[in-house]
Design a protein around this nucleic acid. Structure first.
Length: 453
DNA sequence: CGACGGGACGC
DNA sequence: CGACGGGACGC
Protein backbone atom coordinates (compact mmCIF):
# COMPACT_ATOMS: atom_id res chain seq x y z
CA UNK A 1 0.00 0.00 0.00
CA UNK A 2 1.22 3.49 -0.72
CA UNK A 3 0.68 6.37 1.65
CA UNK A 4 -2.30 7.73 -0.18
CA UNK A 5 -4.03 4.45 0.18
CA UNK A 6 -3.15 4.18 3.86
CA UNK A 7 -4.51 7.60 4.70
CA UNK A 8 -7.59 6.94 2.69
CA UNK A 9 -8.16 3.80 4.70
CA UNK A 10 -7.88 5.74 7.94
CA UNK A 11 -10.51 8.13 6.69
CA UNK A 12 -12.77 5.34 5.60
CA UNK A 13 -12.47 3.64 8.96
CA UNK A 14 -14.20 6.59 10.52
CA UNK A 15 -17.42 5.36 8.99
CA UNK A 16 -16.77 1.67 9.21
CA UNK A 17 -19.10 0.28 10.21
CA UNK A 18 -21.62 3.00 9.39
CA UNK A 19 -23.02 5.01 12.29
CA UNK A 20 -20.30 3.92 14.70
CA UNK A 21 -18.94 7.41 15.32
CA UNK A 22 -20.39 9.96 17.71
CA UNK A 23 -20.49 13.71 17.43
CA UNK A 24 -20.40 15.16 20.92
CA UNK A 25 -20.98 18.79 21.87
CA UNK A 26 -19.47 19.57 25.25
CA UNK A 27 -18.40 22.49 27.33
CA UNK A 28 -15.00 23.74 26.23
CA UNK A 29 -13.56 23.00 29.65
CA UNK A 30 -14.19 19.25 29.43
CA UNK A 31 -10.97 17.31 28.86
CA UNK A 32 -10.49 14.43 26.45
CA UNK A 33 -9.81 11.86 29.16
CA UNK A 34 -13.05 12.76 30.91
CA UNK A 35 -14.92 12.09 27.67
CA UNK A 36 -13.05 8.88 27.00
CA UNK A 37 -13.68 7.69 30.50
CA UNK A 38 -17.40 8.37 30.47
CA UNK A 39 -17.99 6.81 27.06
CA UNK A 40 -15.77 3.77 27.53
CA UNK A 41 -18.40 1.80 29.44
CA UNK A 42 -20.58 1.52 26.33
CA UNK A 43 -18.17 -0.44 24.17
CA UNK A 44 -14.87 -0.63 22.41
CA UNK A 45 -13.64 2.87 21.75
CA UNK A 46 -11.32 2.98 18.76
CA UNK A 47 -10.59 6.68 18.82
CA UNK A 48 -11.40 9.85 20.68
CA UNK A 49 -10.70 13.14 19.02
CA UNK A 50 -11.28 16.41 20.78
CA UNK A 51 -11.39 19.24 18.26
CA UNK A 52 -9.08 22.08 19.28
CA UNK A 53 -8.36 25.52 18.02
CA UNK A 54 -5.30 25.39 15.79
CA UNK A 55 -3.64 28.39 17.42
CA UNK A 56 -4.65 28.31 21.04
CA UNK A 57 -4.96 24.52 21.34
CA UNK A 58 -8.10 25.15 23.37
CA UNK A 59 -10.97 22.71 23.02
CA UNK A 60 -13.73 23.92 20.74
CA UNK A 61 -16.26 21.91 22.68
CA UNK A 62 -16.56 19.35 19.89
CA UNK A 63 -15.55 15.74 20.21
CA UNK A 64 -15.73 12.63 18.05
CA UNK A 65 -15.85 9.20 19.62
CA UNK A 66 -15.39 6.17 17.36
CA UNK A 67 -16.77 2.84 18.53
CA UNK A 68 -16.16 -0.59 17.02
CA UNK A 69 -19.89 -1.13 16.53
CA UNK A 70 -22.84 1.03 15.65
CA UNK A 71 -24.90 -0.52 18.44
CA UNK A 72 -22.29 0.61 20.96
CA UNK A 73 -22.27 4.14 19.59
CA UNK A 74 -26.07 4.27 19.58
CA UNK A 75 -26.32 3.01 23.14
CA UNK A 76 -23.76 5.57 24.27
CA UNK A 77 -25.72 8.28 22.47
CA UNK A 78 -28.98 7.25 24.09
CA UNK A 79 -27.49 7.06 27.55
CA UNK A 80 -25.15 10.04 27.49
CA UNK A 81 -27.18 12.69 25.69
CA UNK A 82 -28.05 15.41 28.15
CA UNK A 83 -25.70 14.22 30.86
CA UNK A 84 -23.64 16.65 32.90
CA UNK A 85 -20.07 15.32 32.90
CA UNK A 86 -18.54 17.84 35.26
CA UNK A 87 -20.58 19.65 37.84
CA UNK A 88 -21.39 23.17 36.75
CA UNK A 89 -20.95 22.52 33.03
CA UNK A 90 -23.68 22.32 30.42
CA UNK A 91 -25.33 19.01 29.62
CA UNK A 92 -23.61 17.39 26.66
CA UNK A 93 -25.30 16.68 23.35
CA UNK A 94 -24.59 13.41 21.59
CA UNK A 95 -25.41 12.47 18.01
CA UNK A 96 -24.32 9.92 15.48
CA UNK A 97 -21.72 11.77 13.44
CA UNK A 98 -22.40 12.50 9.82
CA UNK A 99 -20.25 10.33 7.62
CA UNK A 100 -17.15 12.16 6.62
CA UNK A 101 -18.02 12.04 2.96
CA UNK A 102 -21.35 13.70 3.66
CA UNK A 103 -21.53 17.44 3.27
CA UNK A 104 -24.70 17.68 5.32
CA UNK A 105 -24.37 19.27 8.71
CA UNK A 106 -27.84 18.44 9.84
CA UNK A 107 -28.00 16.17 12.86
CA UNK A 108 -28.65 12.54 12.16
CA UNK A 109 -32.11 12.00 13.58
CA UNK A 110 -33.46 8.94 15.30
CA UNK A 111 -35.95 8.71 12.48
CA UNK A 112 -33.08 7.63 10.26
CA UNK A 113 -31.66 5.16 12.77
CA UNK A 114 -34.61 3.20 14.09
CA UNK A 115 -36.15 1.55 11.02
CA UNK A 116 -34.63 -1.42 9.24
CA UNK A 117 -35.37 -2.88 5.85
CA UNK A 118 -35.27 -6.67 5.55
CA UNK A 119 -35.77 -9.47 3.07
CA UNK A 120 -38.01 -12.23 4.33
CA UNK A 121 -39.72 -15.35 3.04
CA UNK A 122 -42.87 -14.53 1.11
CA UNK A 123 -44.74 -16.72 3.54
CA UNK A 124 -43.88 -14.42 6.46
CA UNK A 125 -46.80 -12.64 8.09
CA UNK A 126 -46.25 -9.35 9.87
CA UNK A 127 -46.61 -11.31 13.09
CA UNK A 128 -43.81 -13.64 11.96
CA UNK A 129 -41.71 -10.61 11.16
CA UNK A 130 -42.30 -9.12 14.56
CA UNK A 131 -41.53 -12.37 16.34
CA UNK A 132 -38.31 -12.73 14.43
CA UNK A 133 -36.97 -9.28 15.21
CA UNK A 134 -38.33 -8.55 18.68
CA UNK A 135 -35.33 -10.17 20.30
CA UNK A 136 -33.24 -7.08 19.50
CA UNK A 137 -35.59 -4.62 21.13
CA UNK A 138 -39.13 -3.43 21.46
CA UNK A 139 -40.74 -2.94 18.06
CA UNK A 140 -43.03 -0.05 17.31
CA UNK A 141 -44.44 -1.62 14.17
CA UNK A 142 -43.76 -4.00 11.30
CA UNK A 143 -45.00 -3.81 7.74
CA UNK A 144 -44.58 -6.14 4.82
CA UNK A 145 -44.55 -4.76 1.31
CA UNK A 146 -47.35 -6.37 -0.64
CA UNK A 147 -48.64 -6.32 -4.14
CA UNK A 148 -51.34 -3.70 -4.07
CA UNK A 149 -53.81 -5.62 -6.17
CA UNK A 150 -53.24 -9.24 -5.15
CA UNK A 151 -52.13 -8.53 -1.61
CA UNK A 152 -49.29 -11.06 -1.83
CA UNK A 153 -46.04 -10.40 -0.04
CA UNK A 154 -43.09 -9.12 -1.99
CA UNK A 155 -40.74 -10.66 0.55
CA UNK A 156 -39.67 -7.27 1.86
CA UNK A 157 -40.45 -5.68 5.18
CA UNK A 158 -39.82 -2.77 7.51
CA UNK A 159 -39.27 -3.03 11.25
CA UNK A 160 -39.39 0.13 13.34
CA UNK A 161 -37.71 0.04 16.73
CA UNK A 162 -37.95 2.64 19.43
CA UNK A 163 -34.22 3.09 19.84
CA UNK A 164 -31.32 3.36 17.39
CA UNK A 165 -29.32 0.85 19.45
CA UNK A 166 -32.03 -1.76 18.91
CA UNK A 167 -32.07 -1.29 15.15
CA UNK A 168 -28.26 -1.38 15.09
CA UNK A 169 -28.25 -4.58 17.13
CA UNK A 170 -30.73 -6.22 14.76
CA UNK A 171 -28.58 -5.33 11.78
CA UNK A 172 -25.47 -6.64 13.48
CA UNK A 173 -26.87 -9.83 14.90
CA UNK A 174 -29.78 -11.08 12.83
CA UNK A 175 -29.34 -13.89 10.35
CA UNK A 176 -27.52 -12.66 7.27
CA UNK A 177 -30.20 -14.08 5.00
CA UNK A 178 -32.47 -11.24 6.11
CA UNK A 179 -30.02 -8.75 4.64
CA UNK A 180 -31.03 -6.20 7.24
CA UNK A 181 -30.01 -2.62 6.54
CA UNK A 182 -31.17 0.74 7.79
CA UNK A 183 -34.20 1.86 5.84
CA UNK A 184 -34.07 5.14 3.97
CA UNK A 185 -36.42 7.58 5.64
CA UNK A 186 -39.86 7.76 4.20
CA UNK A 187 -40.30 10.57 1.76
CA UNK A 188 -41.31 13.73 3.54
CA UNK A 189 -44.85 15.02 4.00
CA UNK A 190 -45.86 11.67 5.44
CA UNK A 191 -44.14 12.41 8.72
CA UNK A 192 -46.54 14.98 10.06
CA UNK A 193 -47.93 13.92 13.36
CA UNK A 194 -50.08 15.77 15.81
CA UNK A 195 -47.92 16.56 18.80
CA UNK A 196 -50.89 16.20 21.09
CA UNK A 197 -50.69 12.53 20.27
CA UNK A 198 -47.56 12.39 22.36
CA UNK A 199 -49.52 11.55 25.47
CA UNK A 200 -50.99 8.51 23.83
CA UNK A 201 -47.57 7.35 22.71
CA UNK A 202 -45.91 7.52 26.08
CA UNK A 203 -47.29 4.20 27.22
CA UNK A 204 -45.35 2.31 24.60
CA UNK A 205 -42.28 3.01 26.61
CA UNK A 206 -43.70 1.11 29.53
CA UNK A 207 -41.29 -1.68 28.81
CA UNK A 208 -40.01 -3.48 31.90
CA UNK A 209 -36.93 -4.62 30.02
CA UNK A 210 -35.94 -1.02 29.50
CA UNK A 211 -36.58 -0.39 33.10
CA UNK A 212 -34.10 -3.03 34.16
CA UNK A 213 -31.40 -0.93 32.61
CA UNK A 214 -32.04 1.92 34.95
CA UNK A 215 -28.95 3.94 35.45
CA UNK A 216 -27.38 3.37 38.84
CA UNK A 217 -24.00 4.75 37.94
CA UNK A 218 -24.69 8.36 37.41
CA UNK A 219 -25.84 10.10 40.46
CA UNK A 220 -28.75 10.08 42.79
CA UNK A 221 -32.41 10.31 42.16
CA UNK A 222 -33.92 13.67 42.83
CA UNK A 223 -37.35 15.20 42.41
CA UNK A 224 -35.80 17.58 39.94
CA UNK A 225 -35.23 16.75 36.27
CA UNK A 226 -33.28 18.49 33.56
CA UNK A 227 -34.62 18.10 30.05
CA UNK A 228 -32.45 18.88 27.04
CA UNK A 229 -33.81 19.32 23.55
CA UNK A 230 -32.51 20.57 20.25
CA UNK A 231 -35.81 21.47 18.76
CA UNK A 232 -37.40 24.72 19.79
CA UNK A 233 -40.13 23.78 22.21
CA UNK A 234 -42.42 26.17 23.97
CA UNK A 235 -43.00 26.35 27.68
CA UNK A 236 -46.54 25.12 27.06
CA UNK A 237 -45.42 22.05 25.12
CA UNK A 238 -42.92 21.03 27.77
CA UNK A 239 -45.40 21.66 30.53
CA UNK A 240 -48.05 19.53 28.81
CA UNK A 241 -45.60 16.69 28.24
CA UNK A 242 -44.28 16.45 31.79
CA UNK A 243 -47.71 17.10 33.24
CA UNK A 244 -48.71 13.66 31.95
CA UNK A 245 -46.99 12.25 35.01
CA UNK A 246 -48.88 13.23 38.14
CA UNK A 247 -47.18 15.36 40.74
CA UNK A 248 -45.44 17.93 38.58
CA UNK A 249 -45.09 21.07 40.61
CA UNK A 250 -42.62 23.10 38.61
CA UNK A 251 -41.70 23.27 34.95
CA UNK A 252 -39.78 25.96 33.25
CA UNK A 253 -37.85 26.44 30.09
CA UNK A 254 -34.45 27.94 30.85
CA UNK A 255 -33.91 31.13 28.97
CA UNK A 256 -30.87 33.23 28.45
CA UNK A 257 -30.60 36.97 28.88
CA UNK A 258 -32.27 37.55 25.53
CA UNK A 259 -35.21 35.34 26.30
CA UNK A 260 -34.17 32.68 23.82
CA UNK A 261 -34.52 29.04 24.59
CA UNK A 262 -31.29 27.38 25.53
CA UNK A 263 -32.78 23.98 24.92
CA UNK A 264 -33.01 23.09 28.56
CA UNK A 265 -35.89 22.91 30.96
CA UNK A 266 -36.11 22.20 34.65
CA UNK A 267 -38.95 20.09 35.93
CA UNK A 268 -39.70 19.23 39.49
CA UNK A 269 -42.17 16.76 40.93
CA UNK A 270 -43.66 16.65 44.38
CA UNK A 271 -42.11 13.25 45.03
CA UNK A 272 -39.21 11.10 43.94
CA UNK A 273 -41.38 8.35 42.50
CA UNK A 274 -42.94 10.66 39.96
CA UNK A 275 -39.55 12.03 38.95
CA UNK A 276 -38.08 8.55 38.54
CA UNK A 277 -41.08 7.57 36.50
CA UNK A 278 -40.98 10.70 34.34
CA UNK A 279 -37.30 10.17 33.65
CA UNK A 280 -37.88 6.59 32.59
CA UNK A 281 -40.82 7.51 30.40
CA UNK A 282 -39.61 10.64 28.71
CA UNK A 283 -35.85 10.20 28.38
CA UNK A 284 -35.30 9.39 24.72
CA UNK A 285 -38.87 10.19 23.82
CA UNK A 286 -39.12 11.82 20.41
CA UNK A 287 -40.94 15.10 20.64
CA UNK A 288 -41.53 16.21 18.07
CA UNK A 289 -40.80 12.97 16.18
CA UNK A 290 -37.14 12.94 15.25
CA UNK A 291 -36.13 15.12 18.17
CA UNK A 292 -34.94 12.96 21.01
CA UNK A 293 -35.51 14.48 24.42
CA UNK A 294 -32.90 13.89 27.08
CA UNK A 295 -34.20 13.75 30.61
CA UNK A 296 -31.92 13.31 33.57
CA UNK A 297 -32.00 13.82 37.26
CA UNK A 298 -30.85 17.26 38.15
CA UNK A 299 -28.71 17.45 41.23
CA UNK A 300 -30.05 20.56 42.84
CA UNK A 301 -28.61 19.65 46.18
CA UNK A 302 -31.84 18.45 47.71
CA UNK A 303 -33.57 15.15 48.09
CA UNK A 304 -30.55 12.96 47.80
CA UNK A 305 -31.17 9.31 48.25
CA UNK A 306 -29.06 6.65 49.89
CA UNK A 307 -28.23 3.45 47.97
CA UNK A 308 -30.81 1.66 50.08
CA UNK A 309 -33.29 4.38 49.24
CA UNK A 310 -32.54 3.83 45.57
CA UNK A 311 -33.53 0.20 45.75
CA UNK A 312 -36.74 1.16 47.44
CA UNK A 313 -37.28 3.76 44.77
CA UNK A 314 -36.74 1.25 42.02
CA UNK A 315 -39.41 -0.90 43.53
CA UNK A 316 -41.82 1.95 43.92
CA UNK A 317 -41.20 3.24 40.43
CA UNK A 318 -41.77 -0.23 39.04
CA UNK A 319 -45.10 -0.33 40.79
CA UNK A 320 -45.98 3.06 39.45
CA UNK A 321 -45.07 2.03 35.95
CA UNK A 322 -47.64 -0.68 35.96
CA UNK A 323 -50.08 1.32 37.99
CA UNK A 324 -50.22 4.74 36.41
CA UNK A 325 -51.51 3.57 33.09
CA UNK A 326 -53.88 1.04 34.51
CA UNK A 327 -56.52 3.21 35.99
CA UNK A 328 -58.22 3.18 39.37
CA UNK A 329 -55.64 1.30 41.44
CA UNK A 330 -53.10 4.06 40.85
CA UNK A 331 -53.77 6.25 43.82
CA UNK A 332 -53.88 3.25 46.09
CA UNK A 333 -50.48 2.09 45.00
CA UNK A 334 -49.10 5.52 45.59
CA UNK A 335 -50.61 5.82 49.01
CA UNK A 336 -49.53 2.38 50.10
CA UNK A 337 -46.04 3.16 48.88
CA UNK A 338 -45.90 6.25 51.00
CA UNK A 339 -45.94 8.72 48.16
CA UNK A 340 -48.46 11.47 47.77
CA UNK A 341 -48.01 11.93 44.08
CA UNK A 342 -51.56 12.95 43.32
CA UNK A 343 -52.46 14.95 46.40
CA UNK A 344 -49.62 17.44 46.31
CA UNK A 345 -50.27 19.21 43.04
CA UNK A 346 -48.94 22.51 44.33
CA UNK A 347 -47.47 23.85 41.15
CA UNK A 348 -45.68 27.10 41.37
CA UNK A 349 -46.78 29.61 38.86
CA UNK A 350 -45.06 32.93 38.85
CA UNK A 351 -44.17 35.89 36.71
CA UNK A 352 -40.53 35.65 37.72
CA UNK A 353 -37.84 33.40 36.32
CA UNK A 354 -36.78 31.40 39.34
CA UNK A 355 -33.39 29.73 39.68
CA UNK A 356 -33.46 26.03 40.63
CA UNK A 357 -34.04 25.12 44.27
CA UNK A 358 -31.09 25.06 46.60
CA UNK A 359 -30.38 23.20 49.78
CA UNK A 360 -31.49 24.81 53.02
CA UNK A 361 -28.85 26.01 55.45
CA UNK A 362 -28.60 23.89 58.61
CA UNK A 363 -31.29 24.81 61.15
CA UNK A 364 -28.69 25.90 63.68
CA UNK A 365 -27.05 28.35 61.27
CA UNK A 366 -26.63 31.88 62.52
CA UNK A 367 -29.15 34.28 60.96
CA UNK A 368 -27.32 37.02 59.09
CA UNK A 369 -30.33 38.61 57.43
CA UNK A 370 -34.10 38.48 57.69
CA UNK A 371 -36.59 39.37 54.99
CA UNK A 372 -40.04 40.68 55.82
CA UNK A 373 -42.70 39.57 53.35
CA UNK A 374 -46.22 40.93 52.97
CA UNK A 375 -48.71 38.80 51.05
CA UNK A 376 -51.75 39.99 49.15
CA UNK A 377 -54.50 38.96 49.29
CA UNK A 378 -53.48 36.07 51.58
CA UNK A 379 -50.29 34.29 52.67
CA UNK A 380 -48.80 31.42 50.66
CA UNK A 381 -48.36 28.01 52.29
CA UNK A 382 -44.99 27.52 54.05
CA UNK A 383 -43.85 24.71 51.72
CA UNK A 384 -44.39 26.88 48.66
CA UNK A 385 -42.56 29.74 50.31
CA UNK A 386 -39.67 27.49 51.22
CA UNK A 387 -39.51 26.32 47.63
CA UNK A 388 -39.43 29.85 46.29
CA UNK A 389 -37.18 31.53 48.83
CA UNK A 390 -34.62 28.73 49.09
CA UNK A 391 -33.53 29.26 45.51
CA UNK A 392 -31.10 32.04 46.31
CA UNK A 393 -29.22 29.91 48.81
CA UNK A 394 -28.65 29.86 52.56
CA UNK A 395 -32.34 29.94 53.55
CA UNK A 396 -32.62 28.71 57.12
CA UNK A 397 -36.31 28.94 57.83
CA UNK A 398 -39.66 30.31 56.73
CA UNK A 399 -41.69 31.86 59.50
CA UNK A 400 -45.28 32.92 58.94
CA UNK A 401 -46.91 35.10 61.57
CA UNK A 402 -50.08 33.27 62.61
CA UNK A 403 -53.26 35.11 61.77
CA UNK A 404 -51.42 37.79 59.75
CA UNK A 405 -50.56 38.16 56.10
CA UNK A 406 -46.85 38.56 56.74
CA UNK A 407 -43.83 36.34 57.26
CA UNK A 408 -40.08 36.31 57.85
CA UNK A 409 -37.41 34.51 55.84
CA UNK A 410 -34.20 33.78 57.72
CA UNK A 411 -30.98 33.58 55.76
CA UNK A 412 -27.49 32.56 56.82
CA UNK A 413 -25.96 34.78 54.17
CA UNK A 414 -26.68 38.43 53.57
CA UNK A 415 -26.04 38.40 49.83
CA UNK A 416 -28.44 35.49 49.32
CA UNK A 417 -31.15 37.36 51.18
CA UNK A 418 -30.53 40.52 49.19
CA UNK A 419 -30.68 38.56 45.95
CA UNK A 420 -33.99 36.99 46.99
CA UNK A 421 -35.39 40.39 47.83
CA UNK A 422 -34.34 41.99 44.56
CA UNK A 423 -35.72 39.13 42.47
CA UNK A 424 -38.94 38.49 44.34
CA UNK A 425 -40.12 41.91 45.47
CA UNK A 426 -43.38 42.85 43.81
CA UNK A 427 -43.69 39.44 42.16
CA UNK A 428 -46.72 37.17 42.00
CA UNK A 429 -46.56 33.51 43.02
CA UNK A 430 -49.65 31.33 42.60
CA UNK A 431 -51.73 34.46 42.35
CA UNK A 432 -50.35 35.98 45.53
CA UNK A 433 -48.48 39.25 45.28
CA UNK A 434 -45.50 39.64 47.55
CA UNK A 435 -43.74 42.66 48.99
CA UNK A 436 -40.25 41.58 50.01
CA UNK A 437 -38.30 43.93 52.27
CA UNK A 438 -35.48 43.86 54.76
CA UNK A 439 -36.94 43.06 58.18
CA UNK A 440 -36.59 45.60 60.96
CA UNK A 441 -34.30 44.38 63.74
CA UNK A 442 -36.30 42.35 66.24
CA UNK A 443 -37.59 44.24 69.23
CA UNK A 444 -35.50 43.70 72.36
CA UNK A 445 -38.18 42.40 74.66
CA UNK A 446 -35.79 40.91 77.16
CA UNK A 447 -32.54 42.11 78.75
CA UNK A 448 -31.60 38.68 79.98
CA UNK A 449 -30.08 37.40 76.74
CA UNK A 450 -29.66 38.35 73.14
CA UNK A 451 -32.20 37.02 70.74
CA UNK A 452 -31.01 34.39 68.34
CA UNK A 453 -33.65 35.55 65.85
C1' DC B 1 -34.12 -28.24 -11.78
C1' DG B 2 -33.70 -24.53 -8.38
C1' DA B 3 -28.95 -21.53 -6.56
C1' DC B 4 -27.97 -17.01 -6.55
C1' DG B 5 -28.93 -12.55 -5.45
C1' DG B 6 -31.63 -8.96 -5.22
C1' DG B 7 -33.90 -4.23 -2.22
C1' DA B 8 -38.24 0.32 -1.08
C1' DC B 9 -43.13 1.99 1.55
C1' DG B 10 -50.96 3.90 -1.86
C1' DC B 11 -49.13 11.10 -0.78
C1' DC C 1 -26.04 27.06 19.00
C1' DG C 2 -22.11 22.87 17.42
C1' DA C 3 -18.90 19.39 12.32
C1' DC C 4 -13.68 17.02 11.05
C1' DG C 5 -6.36 16.39 13.19
C1' DG C 6 -2.05 14.38 13.20
C1' DG C 7 0.65 11.23 11.52
C1' DA C 8 3.17 8.34 8.13
C1' DC C 9 4.03 1.82 5.45
C1' DG C 10 8.09 0.16 3.35
C1' DC C 11 9.90 0.08 -1.32
Amino acid sequence: LDDKCASKQVTENLDDPPNSRLFVVTSRSIAEDVLRESFSVFGDIQAVWLVKDKQTKESKGICYVKFAKSSQACLAMEEMHGKVLVEGTKPIKVFIAQSRSSSRHRDVEDEELTRIFVMIPKTFSEEDLKNTFKEYGEIEYCVIIKNKSTGESKGLGYVRYYKPSQAALAIEKCDKTYRAILAEPRTKAATTEDYSGAAARVDYMADPSNYQMMDFRSGEFTRCLMMSTRAALTQEQIFALFDIIPGMEYCELQRDAYGMSKGHALIRYSNLGSAVYAKEKLNGFEYPPGNRLAVNFFDDGEDRCSPVGRMAMQFVAAQMMSAVWNGPSTSQVMKSSGFSAVSSMSRIQTDVNLPPPKKLAPPDSKTKERLFVVFSPSPLPPDVLEDVFCRFGSLIEVHLVPGRKVGYMKYADKQCADEAMSVLHGRVVNGVKMKVMLADPPREESHKRLRTY
